[in-house]
Design a protein around this nucleic acid. Structure first.
Lengths: 142, 142
DNA sequence: CGGCGATAGATGTAGATACACATATCGGAT
DNA sequence: ATCCGATATGTGTATCTACATCTATCGCCG
């Protein structure tokens, strides 16, 4: 039989805390990126492709800490916008994702808005919290 | 003209970090909660209703740091499962959300799994990071 | 060469998220 | 009494997320 709910214990829920923080931060980024017609999640993918070069869908998903099947859907939208290109990979199973000129231009145009959102977030949560959040995001959760 | 992308700068993206952390933590919670047929997001709402009592949709959304319209959709699923009840509120505009006996029983049955996920997350990210995350989630992001 | 586990990815289904907009009601000012 | 801004909520649309399952291909072992 489960014990009764303890308010102090349940108020500490890390799933709520992490999702709540992500929602708030994403809203802030999306608001600033809206004039550029790109979502924070999409810009993240474009930046990853610029920084770490073309790669397979699985490798990109791994790098972003996202489900591979989720990334497949996200990439379809970016491909429709011609911000990325998906070509056949080394063998007939894999596919290679790479950013296009249009995608690179879009990411660079959105960079000032991205910086503004980043700065606003750091100011809101403190530099120490920002560093803690980055470190935390690297860790696998069993 | 936007400056060129700086790898060090872009790797610090807080939107990516927060979403990545939330995805990983949510997957961990959902995996453990699956035998109970309840999602982490749903359990969060049930717990909030237990701890803070019945209230309007807007007040609940505010408390959870979630968009009101998002909560409306989430509540529809909980209502269909008969875990919550939505009644007319004080005036004809507002509605009152409250947990049902079934909902309370479901939340209490899932509590051990929730505790297990919570403990696994704390162990993975460290107690200090957990506290930082909780504090961070409280802050509004402009 | 043929089979078989491993690998890479796509699809079906379901839920979470949020903005723009629409609806209904309330309460105070005239 | 009526009008009008404020309040509380629902709906249309689009995107993000992920598990279960499917298809295709690869590489190895006999």
């Amino acid at each position: 039989m489960a014990a009764r709910l303890d308010p102090a214990e349940c108020a500490e829920c890390l799933c709520l805390a992490s999702r709540r923080a992500a929602r708030a931060i994403t809203r802030s980024f999306d608001r600033r990126l809206r004039p550029h017609g790109v979502r924070a999640t999409q810009l993240t993918i474009l930046i990853a492709l610029i920084l770490y070069g073309p790669g397979s869908i699985g490798a990109l998903a791994e790098g972003l800490g996202i489900e591979r099947t989720t990334l497949t859907r996200n990439l379809a939208l970016l491909e429709a916008a011609r911000w990325i290109r998906i070509r056949p990979g080394e063998d007939a199973r894999s596919r290679l994702v790479e950013i296009t000129k249009r995608g690179r231009a879009k990411a660079e145009a959105a960079l000032p808005a991205w910086r503004s959102a980043q700065a606003a977030t750091v100011a809101a949560i403190s530099l120490a919290a920002a560093e803690a959040l980055r470190a935390l995001a690297q860790r696998p959760i069993p």
